[in-house]
Simulated scan of single mutants.
Amino acid sequence: MKKILSTAIFPLLITAPVMANAHHGPSYHTHHHYHNSNHNPYQGPRVGLGISYLSDRHIDTDTGFKLEGGYDFNRIVGFNLSYEESGYDYYRGSIDYSTVKLGTDLGYAFPLSPSVSLKPYVSLGFHRTTEDNRWCSSKNCYSTNYSDTDSYYGIGMRLTADMFYINVSNEVLNMDVGRYRHELDQIAVTFGLKFR
């Protein structure tokens, strides 16, 4: 998990100063640009696609996918809706997870240049996660299905440059599976478009 998170954050650390320097010149004035622009660079819808990964003390899924949409109201508050899938195979069986999340992110978008900003944030909301477990014995195959609606919380960072963005998130899903209570770590990296 640490390896994936490090890999996810690395592009942000490398890309942010490069994009900022590309727009930085003698006449660069962040305050002047944002107050005289015809649009608000911190407001508008966004949509992205990326990879997702799920783990806890007992499971460690393969890399799946994430589809997300959202809306930024200002520098601080954003709305998020996402769908994520991942799973793994084991001897004579497999487990698949699917998650729908609805929530908000709260942080602050720091301007790096007139068209580039970096927003570290905390996220919280609700999720609906389903676990599909399938396995076979020497004679028969079986399946079980568990679903739970509960809360989630986490942290993330979003780099926005013009109409493009990169989002890295690490969120904890509270989930009851049968008689057991789980806290699942869901790490995702998405690339998308920001509309204004």
Score class of each variant (00 low, 15 high):
residue 163 M to W: 14
residue 15 T to F: 11
residue 115 S to K: 07
residue 36 N to P: 05
residue 10 F to W: 03
residue 11 P to W: 07
residue 188 A to M: 05
residue 118 L to P: 05
residue 2 K to A: 11
residue 29 H to C: 09
residue 139 K to P: 00
residue 73 F to T: 04
residue 81 L to V: 14
residue 42 Y to D: 06
residue 164 F to K: 01
residue 16 A to I: 04
residue 116 V to Q: 00
residue 94 S to R: 15
residue 124 L to H: 07
residue 171 E to W: 02
residue 160 T to W: 01
residue 69 G to Q: 02
residue 28 Y to Q: 10
residue 124 L to M: 11
residue 51 I to S: 04
residue 95 I to N: 06
residue 160 T to V: 11
residue 162 D to W: 04
residue 167 N to D: 14
residue 99 T to F: 01
residue 46 R to S: 02
residue 162 D to E: 10
residue 86 S to F: 04
residue 97 Y to S: 04
residue 99 T to S: 13
residue 29 H to G: 01
residue 190 T to W: 02
residue 154 G to P: 08
residue 24 H to N: 14
residue 1 M to A: 13
residue 89 D to M: 06
residue 157 M to L: 15
residue 191 F to C: 01
residue 37 S to N: 11
residue 70 G to P: 05
residue 23 H to D: 10
residue 29 H to F: 09
residue 8 A to K: 00
residue 193 L to K: 07
residue 102 L to P: 02
residue 164 F to N: 00
residue 89 D to G: 04
residue 192 G to L: 06
residue 15 T to P: 03
residue 110 F to E: 00
residue 151 S to N: 15
residue 66 K to S: 04
residue 146 Y to W: 13
residue 177 V to Y: 03
residue 17 P to Q: 05
residue 143 S to L: 10
residue 13 L to Q: 04
residue 87 G to D: 09
residue 49 L to M: 11
residue 144 T to L: 14
residue 160 T to Q: 07
residue 156 G to I: 10
residue 120 P to G: 07
residue 34 Y to S: 01
residue 81 L to F: 09
residue 159 L to M: 09
residue 142 Y to G: 08
residue 74 N to I: 10
residue 161 A to M: 05
residue 170 N to G: 12
residue 125 G to V: 10
residue 62 D to Y: 08
residue 68 E to Y: 01
residue 125 G to R: 07
residue 56 D to M: 05
residue 189 V to N: 00
residue 61 T to D: 02
residue 189 V to T: 08
